[in-house]
C-alpha cells in the first residue's frame, strides 16, 4: 500500500512541477523545474522495472539538458516577457 501512495504522490508532484515549469515567468526557475521533472521521471522508470532507462534519463535529462538550457539563458534573456532585462540587464 505504501508503494501505491509513493506512486500517486510522485505522479501529482510530476504534474505540479510541469505546471510550474510552464507557467513561471523566470526562465531559470522553469529550467530547474524541468530538471526536477527528469529526476521524478527516472524514479518512475526505476519503479516500472526499467533501470537502464532510469540511468540514461538521470544522466541526460538532469545534467546535460539543464546545462545546455542554462547556457542558452545566459546567452539570451532570463525574463520570459523581456520587460525587466531591457531596463537594468538583471532580473
Amino acid at each position: 500500500m505504501i508503494y501505491i501512495a509513493i506512486l500517486i504522490i510522485m505522479g501529482v508532484l510530476l504534474l505540479a512541477t510541469a505546471i510550474f515549469a510552464v507557467t513561471h515567468r523566470d526562465l531559470l526557475f522553469a529550467v530547474i523545474a524541468t530538471g526536477i521533472i527528469s529526476l521524478i521521471l527516472s524514479l518512475f522508470f526505476y519503479l516500472l522495472q526499467a533501470p537502464d532507462v532510469a540511468l540514461t534519463e538521470a544522466a541526460i535529462g538532469i545534467a546535460l539538458t539543464t546545462i545546455i538550457f542554462v547556457i542558452t539563458i545566459r546567452n539570451t534573456t532570463r525574463d520570459e516577457d523581456e520587460i525587466i532585462d531591457k531596463k537594468n540587464e538583471k532580473l
Partner: peptide
C-alpha cells in the same frame, strides 16, 4: 500557447517526457 522560444523548447521537452512515460507504462 507560449510566446517565448525557450519556453516552447521547455514544453517540447515536457511532451517528450510524457511520451517516454507512456511507452514504459505500456511495456510494463
Amino acid at each position: 500557447m507560449k510566446k517565448n522560444l525557450v519556453k516552447i523548447v521547455i514544453g517540447l521537452s515536457i511532451l517528450d517526457a510524457g511520451l517516454h512515460l507512456l511507452f514504459i507504462g505500456i511495456g510494463y
